[in-house]
Simulated assay, not measured.
Amino acid sequence: MPAPCQLDASDGDLRIRTDVTGPAARMGHHLTILVATWHASVGWDGDEPVAVELTADVDSLQIERGDGGVTPLSGPERALARTNALKTLSAQRYPTVTFTSDRMTPAGGGYHLAGELEIHGHHRAHSLDVAVTDKGDGWRLEARSAVRQTDFGVRPYSMFMGSMKVVDTVTIEFSATVRR
C-alpha cells in the first residue's frame, strides 16, 4: 500500500472568493483571498485514494485581488480587508479550518468526497467533487465548493449599517499537482 500522499501550498493553491450585496454593493470589492499555508494528506488502499485531510491556517490569508468597487483596491484597503477577514473568522480563537473525508467514491473523471468541514469551531457535513486529470508524470486535482458562512457561526462582514456586506455564501477553490 502506498504511503500517504502529502500536499501543501508548494503543490497548488487554495483560494476563497467572496461577493458583495446590499444597496451599496457597487462600492465593495469581490475579493480573491489566497490561503498561503495549508497541508493535506491523502490515504490510499492499493491504487485507490480512500481518505483525505486538509488543514488551512487562517492567519495565512492574503488578499490576492479585489475586483469591482468604485476605485481599485489599494494597499491600505487590502490590509483592512485582511484584518476584517481575520476578525470575522476569529482567527486567534480558531486558527485552522479543516476538511476530513474517509468516504471517497469515483465520480465522472474524479472523486466525490463526503466528510466533515470545521470552521470557526463548528463541524458540519460537507461534500465536494474533485476532478482528476492525468498529466503523464502526475495528476492535476481541481475542486470548487460553496460554503455558507452562517452555517459555521460566522457572521459575514458588513459595513455602512449593513448597506454593503459580504454575501453569506463564499466559494472555495482548490487546485494542485501531484507527482507520480
Rank of each mutant, 00 (worst) to 15 (best):
V132Q: 01
T105H: 08
A91T: 03
D45M: 13
G69S: 07
D57F: 00
V132L: 06
Q62S: 04
V167T: 14
M1A: 14
F160L: 15
H123D: 12
T100W: 09
H122S: 15
V52F: 06
S145M: 01
R124G: 08
T55V: 15
D57Q: 07
V154L: 02
A25I: 05
M161L: 15
S175L: 07
T105N: 04
S74M: 03
A146F: 07
D13Y: 07
S101H: 04
V154D: 03
L117C: 05
L89I: 04
S74L: 02
W139E: 15
S74F: 01
P156M: 01
T105W: 12
S60H: 02
D151R: 02
E142C: 13
L80S: 08
L54D: 02
F152Q: 03
T150S: 15
P156I: 01
S60M: 00
R93L: 07
T96V: 12
A91C: 02
V178N: 02
A24E: 13
K135D: 15
V50T: 11
E64K: 00
L73C: 01
V178S: 07
T150E: 15
A85L: 09
R140A: 05
H122T: 14
P76C: 00
P2Y: 10
V35L: 08
R103A: 11
D59Q: 10
D11T: 14
G108V: 12
R82F: 00
D57N: 02
